[in-house]
Design a protein around this nucleic acid. Structure first.
Lengths: 133, 133
DNA sequence: ATATCTGCAAAATCTTTGCATTTAA
DNA sequence: TTAAATGCAAAGATTTTGCAGATAT
């Protein structure tokens, strides 16, 4: 199972790299379709899974029942807006030490954690402030 | 929309309270079915959603694509075994202050976070140790 | 009496997969 | 040439929903 080049796969990854908003498979599909009108949703899913397995992209599960994808595989945290659902990168210090906190009274082995924050994104917060004034 | 008593709903909640392993809707269904052989999966889902909305149970999303449910609504963290998939309660100090860490360079409003830890549960860790010795 | 709840089945949503064909190497 | 990738459509898995009948208040 050697990897073989595919223009579709490259287009999928290229598209993801242009976006900072962590699109879903469906969004990837409709966008890549402007370049490859015949691409199928199955191909999009297959390639997203493949790229994620290769570690070239990250699969994000933020609890909305849909997978999001991120071309930025560097360790960072995400924020999910409770109002609009947007997923935003957070520029914050590492909190990896919470693994130690969790390990204190635990007999298993903790190798990592998944964390995302929620609340109001800057845009929705502004909107709410205006509505109240 | 006043709440009306239902034996099915009570059985669902009672079952959840007997379990510490955060069952899925399907597991709830097959267990409650021993008491109510005619209960439908739809009723189970409807009541789990209702109970979660009422805050009487918690809905857990740990990234495996299936919702888990927990009768323990007190704030606590969960561990998901990467090998067996089991979801275990962690007895650990609060890490709520990570909200402040996240808020530092963020213009929106952070109201909370979702965190779960992963690695090897005590049982799978033991098994792996034995296999290597 | 009547609003809520149920069982059933159908549908909705998201994702995976089988297969014949195309394509990269 | 041939293993991998694609498009298409069908199937899987999980969850939601419409509706007619049952049930709690």
């Amino acid at each position: 199972m050697t990897l073989k080049y595919s223009r579709q796969r490259e287009a999928i990854k290229d598209f993801l790299m242009t976006r900072k908003d962590h699109p879903t498979a469906d969004v990837v599909y409709s966008n890549v379709r402007t370049e490859f009108p015949n691409i199928s949703l199955g191909t999009v899913y297959r390639n997203l899974t493949l790229l994620a397995d290769l570690g070239e992209i990250a699969r994000l599960r933020v609890g909305d029942g849909v997978d999001h994808f991120d071309a930025d595989t560097s360790p960072h945290y995400h924020f999910v807006c409770s109002d609009c659902g947007n997923v935003i990168d957070l520029d914050m210090d590492s909190i990896d030490y919470i693994n130690q906190t969790a390990a204190k009274n635990f007999n298993g082995q903790i190798t990592g954690h998944i964390t995302y924050f929620y609340g109001l994104c800057p845009h929705c917060k502004e909107k709410k402030l205006k509505a109240l004034s």
